[in-house]
Amino acid sequence: MTVTIKDVAKLANVAPSTVSRVIADSPRISEETKQKVKRAMEQLGYHPNINARNLVSKSTQTIGLVMPSSKDVGFQNPFFPTVLQGISEGAQEKYYALHMTTGKSEKEILDAVIQMVEGRRVDGVVLLTSRVRDQVSSYLRKRKFPFVLIGKPYQDIEEITHVDNDNIRAMKEATEYLLHLGHRHIAFIGGTRELMVTLDRLDGYEKALQEAGILVKPEYIVHEEFLREGGQEAVRELMALDEPPTALVVADDFMALGVLNTLDELGIQVPQDLSIVSFNNVLLAEMSRPPLTSVDINIFELGYQATKNLILMIENDKEPVKRLIISHRLVERSSCAKYN
């Protein structure tokens, strides 16, 4: 037997129109009433007919997700599953579905986004990375299509809603942590320079050294992919220098895992011979040997707030442009020691 809105209304002791407003997440309905109706829906096994609602509202009730273009990167790095959890929870709260797209090149991704937008497959888009001179964000802006960026825009920062960390400050604090331990030969391992997060974290690293009166050495700055292999290649290059660093700031935990693997092969002990501060604080940072001191950037919250604010834009075209900065904190573990 099919469960209807009337059945839900009867069990919750409200009018059928109230049930409809709860499904639409109307702000005019109190939270207490919403919870009562949701409990009745769950008890009866009632699921809203989203397709029927969408035909009336001319909405797809779907959010598009644009993954990075590098082959397999988005599915290897633990950052992306975690941020997707936040995006998914924000979408589920408002009964939105998710439509994901990726590609082997920037052109493939742009073509896929154009198909999503022109084919009216989604109501808005979340961009999971911020790139220098990004064609996708430029296209979405020209189309005046709702989108939210996770990261800092390369340009027109006041005109694009984005959710980000203060990456300059976070990396500056991470570098200062090593400076306070007495290290003066600190190297930077970051991702590609095409990503805004890399540029911001490099800026924070350089600021910390400059304020400490330490010369920034170009040979101490290495850029690779945000992958374990990237960390392996970077640290081999650094440890082969005539004057190798005594400490590293690594812009990603997954890269840092590769760093640890290679240091073990080279017979270099962490933290006795080399200290490491990493970024993101995903589970592998705690499980690595030794456990990594890492900057927690609240990845889940980045995704959740991106979806929440995109839906506000979808449902209200007067929603103002926002810059949302998510907090960070340094989680101390066993990968750092005072310089001897």
Rank of each mutant, 00 (worst) to 15 (best):
S70L: 10
I87S: 04
L98E: 12
I23P: 11
L110F: 02
R228T: 14
A256R: 05
Y95T: 08
S57M: 14
D164V: 09
Q43T: 11
K172D: 11
Q232D: 08
D296S: 11
K318N: 15
E211A: 09
R120S: 12
E225M: 06
H185F: 10
L312V: 12
G213P: 09
V132M: 09
L202G: 01
Q43F: 05
T129E: 12
D156H: 04
N77K: 13
E159Q: 10
L202T: 05
Q305D: 02
T192L: 03
Y154K: 02
V73S: 07
I114L: 15
L292K: 14
Y339R: 15
A285C: 08
G74M: 00
M171S: 04
S335H: 06
I29K: 13
A52I: 02
Y96L: 11
A208K: 05
L263C: 07
H47W: 04
M313N: 09
L227S: 15
S278C: 07
P81A: 06
A234R: 10
K318A: 13
E243V: 12
L248R: 10
I50E: 02
T60G: 13
E332C: 10
F145V: 08
M116F: 04
T175R: 08
Q232A: 13
G124N: 01
Q155F: 08
M196K: 04
K172G: 07
